[in-house]
Nucleic acid binder design. Structure first.
Lengths: 238, 238
DNA sequence: TCCATCCTCTGGACTAGTTCAGTGAGTTCA
DNA sequence: TGAACTCACTGAACTAGTCCAGAGGATGGA
């Protein structure tokens, strides 16, 4: 069968099926090869169409696993003191956290810059993965200035770090700065998020100050772009 | 000449030339066809490589014109009362604003929802383009609830709307909410930004309340993703 | 000098394939 | 039962083309 005017564009058909609930959140789409047969087109055209729906936030990819329908976005206020689990639960979603790796290193220049370090300084890097409804959507690197946090490595680091700072170290966050950019996923982040290196992520870099106004840690968050809406209300901070 | 291990990947070469200042901000890259000859590869592979650099924020595309090296990002605080021109000038860049279109319509459902309208309401839609250093980077739609703003259409709408609200209507913004998502450019936005429909943009939707706590307008901003870093500091709001 | 037309150039979108490398399920063996 | 192996499946990445439609510059005519 040749393509003709009776043959609606694949991305329009899929979009309608998603909006019409024929395809449900987290549901797997047919493979690219199947779609290219179904719609009598080539795989490159299928990839382009799927990529367009991905850009719209309607579907997401997983490297070597397939394409899936995106669930609704989470509303996220980076200035909020609300723990991840609580934030997700409040939106009737299921949260989970996985500790991936902890390392203790001399701060490389990009970290040193963010933390405004003037000399060689040891930091702990805590890598965690965040899941919503069983899907991995966020890779987080917390970079803690070690000398502020003796013995933290032995703690349960899947819990709220902010709470741990307060309970064990009597640090409260007096101020936060955050920057948001669309970025390309570095290889280690991509692998953790089940995408190929260089795919689009939404990167949030946050710097936290304790009650003495000193920077104590920074945090790099890499979000799946379809999973989150950053939402800020000026009234919550006045 | 066949590809072999001596032939470095095109995107790595271009990335090095950009970081090494052999390719300067706003400079045009060779066309896809030229690059495919230079690097003995196909146009699809060139497009993939260029797309990867675009995702990194290093280059940007213009439909039918070519690919260009991205200038540094603007730091933008959506909660700031700072006018666009001032914000850009403070970062040693040149700002320009172009009024594209003004229309007066009954609010369609997506606008009505954002403005929390309970009944059929007339709105003014003011479309503007924002340029930094001569490059179009931002398409803005301001949606004003008409009955709050008698006679506004005749004003100079390239100036700061916020200032106009205050001077002519004695409205000050007491509160703002904004949402940020990566989105696909609608056709009318894409055309204005010199990209094809469906390309990635960073969409900011803002809602403003006057001193009586009433929503008076909302704003949809569509940013070129490589041009902006959203930057918020909690200390500026306490 | 200005406007209309033409032409080349551009990215966008498509055709028809191929190879690569990791995932995950099923099977086999200890 | 658990671990290792195998194999089909998957998207990623590549080859070699084609056609489309709008941008912008050059040219010619009024």
């Amino acid at each position: 069968m040749k393509k003709n005017a009776d043959n609606p564009k694949m991305k329009d058909v899929l979009r309608e099926q998603i909006f019409g609930r024929a395809l449900l959140p987290l549901q797997k789409l047919p493979s690219e090869r199947e779609l290219s047969e179904l719609f009598s087109t080539t795989r490159i055209s299928v990839k382009d169409a799927l990529g367009a729906l991905e850009t719209e936030g309607l579907i997401y990819r997983e490297d070597r696993r397939g394409w899936f329908v995106s669930p609704p976005r989470i509303r996220y206020n980076p200035l909020s003191r609300c723990h991840f689990n609580q934030m997700i639960n409040e939106q009737d979603r299921i949260a989970e956290t996985q500790l991936i790796n902890i390392s203790t290193i001399m701060a490389p220049s990009d970290y040193a810059k963010v933390l405004e370090l003037k000399e060689l300084t040891e930091i702990h890097v805590i890598e965690r993965l965040r899941y919503i409804d069983g899907r991995v959507v966020l890779f987080v690197e917390n970079c803690l200035i070690s000398h502020f946090f003796p013995g933290i490595i032995e703690e349960n680091l899947t819990q709220s770090l902010t709470q741990l700072y307060q309970d064990k170290y009597q640090f409260t966050t007096s101020r936060s700065r955050f920057d948001v950019i669309p970025a390309a996923a570095p290889a280690h982040v991509a692998k953790a998020l089940n995408i190929s290196a260089g795919q689009q992520v939404l990167k949030i870099c946050r710097v936290n100050y304790n009650q003495q106004g000193k920077i104590i840690d920074c945090e790099f968050e890499y979000w799946r772009p379809d999973a989150v809406m950053i939402s800020i209300d000026s009234i919550e901070h006045s």
